[in-house]
Design a protein around this nucleic acid. Structure first.
Length: 345
DNA sequence: AGATCCTATCGTCAGGCTGC
DNA sequence: GCAGCCTGACGATAGGATCT
């Protein structure tokens, strides 16, 4: 809580313009500007050079990579074919290629039948209602435009797993200690402990759980198989629950405790996937699931924000490029105008 | 110095989308 | 149909800047 936390709390309730909102509004403003630039680009002659009678764009959007050819109809009635400065037509950043196709079709089909118009509007509605993923949009763009970097696909756990632990089972339960360490309990009973500071799974250590007949019923032997350990350590786990504590220090230590004991800081309790009978256990399982879901969502939100930032950066650079291109086109048209229209004395 | 504003970041929820 | 993912929206918090 900050020194003026209470005050801020009261204020934020009144002020609905939170930063996320501002951010999204900024996004929208960027989007708008790009859209304007994009449409201006498509109709440069009509918008930016009002003195020019008519400019029709031919061939734009019909094929990628083909140079944009502009038919400029001069006031004298003469039509001049101009190859634009843009050698490769860029799709709009904020719209998927499909949307651009629709737009181009709209431009080209001014006297088309009403049937295609209906299909078009349907398509448009469909596209507009769909919420695209930042990664998808950017990757679509990057496949069209070489200059745009791809947002990396998230590496799956298998991909990110180094060879020495490639045989690890897929975790079914993930817990985070108060020290930030992640503990994953796999279906096969393997426990993975990873330090958040470590890159990927570098800090991963394996605990293999094996059942033994010697301990009381319901107990589980946890076989500690840390790579740096001298030998294998065994932990006796009473009951059907596992408590693991990750202590700080040179050597990681783990405490397995009974669920009824008071838990020190940094201890996570995990229900064994084996038997869930009592309502209490069911409630614990529900809580565990919720915690897992929240953790995943937390990570997803972080990733989403990162992608969004990347996307906005991409949009901004695209705006800059389009502005330059627009300027060049205007200059080009002005030059053509000067060449083709004789000066009056 | 304290109050207020501004900006950035985070966690959570809800709802759409998608793959199975 | 459903589980999981993605993302907009909202509220909370922190910290720096500015105002009184």
């Amino acid at each position: 809580m900050s020194k003026c936390g209470r005050k801020k709390y009261m204020r934020t309730n009144v002020r609905h313009m939170t930063m996320e909102t501002v951010e999204s509004q900024q996004d929208r403003s960027v989007t708008h500007s790009v859209a304007e630039h994009s449409s201006a680009h498509m109709q440069t002659g009509q918008i930016s050079v009002p003195t020019l009678a008519q400019v029709s764009v031919a061939g734009s959007g019909t094929g990628r990579g083909s140079p944009a050819v502009t038919l400029v109809q001069l006031p004298s009635g003469q039509t001049v074919q101009v190859q634009g400065v843009i050698q490769t037509p860029h799709p709009s950043v904020i719209q998927s290629p499909q949307i651009q196709t629709v737009q181009v079709a709209t431009i080209a089909e001014t006297d088309d039948s009403a049937e295609s118009e209906v299909i078009d509007s349907h398509k448009r509605r469909e596209i507009l209602s769909r919420r695209p993923s930042y990664r998808k949009i950017l990757n679509e763009l990057s496949s069209d435009v070489p200059g745009i970097p791809k947002i990396e696909e998230e590496k799956s756990e298998e991909e990110g797993t180094p060879p020495n632990i490639a045989t690890m089972a897929v975790p079914t339960s993930i817990y985070q200690t108060s020290t930030g360490q992640y503990i994953a309990i796999a279906q096969g009973g393997a426990i993975q402990i990873s330090n958040p500071g470590s890159d990927g799974v570098q800090g991963l250590q394996a605990l293999t759980m094996t059942n033994s007949g010697a301990p009381p019923p319901g107990a589980t032997i946890v076989q500690y198989a840390a790579q740096s350990a001298d030998g294998t350590q065994q932990f006796f786990v009473p009951g059907s629950q596992v408590v693991v504590q990750a202590a700080t220090g040179d050597m990681p230590t783990y405490q397995i405790r009974a669920p009824t004991t008071a838990l020190p800081q940094g201890v996570v309790m995990a229900a064994s996937p084996g038997s869930l009978h009592s309502p209490q256990q069911l409630a614990e399982e529900a809580t565990r699931k919720r915690e897992l879901r929240l953790m995943k969502n937390r990570e997803a939100a972080k990733e989403c924000r990162r992608r969004k930032k990347e996307y906005v950066k991409c949009l901004e650079s695209r705006v800059a490029v389009l502005e330059v291109q627009n300027k060049k086109l205007i200059e080009e048209l002005e030059t053509l105008k000067d060449i083709c229209s004789p000066k009056t004395d």
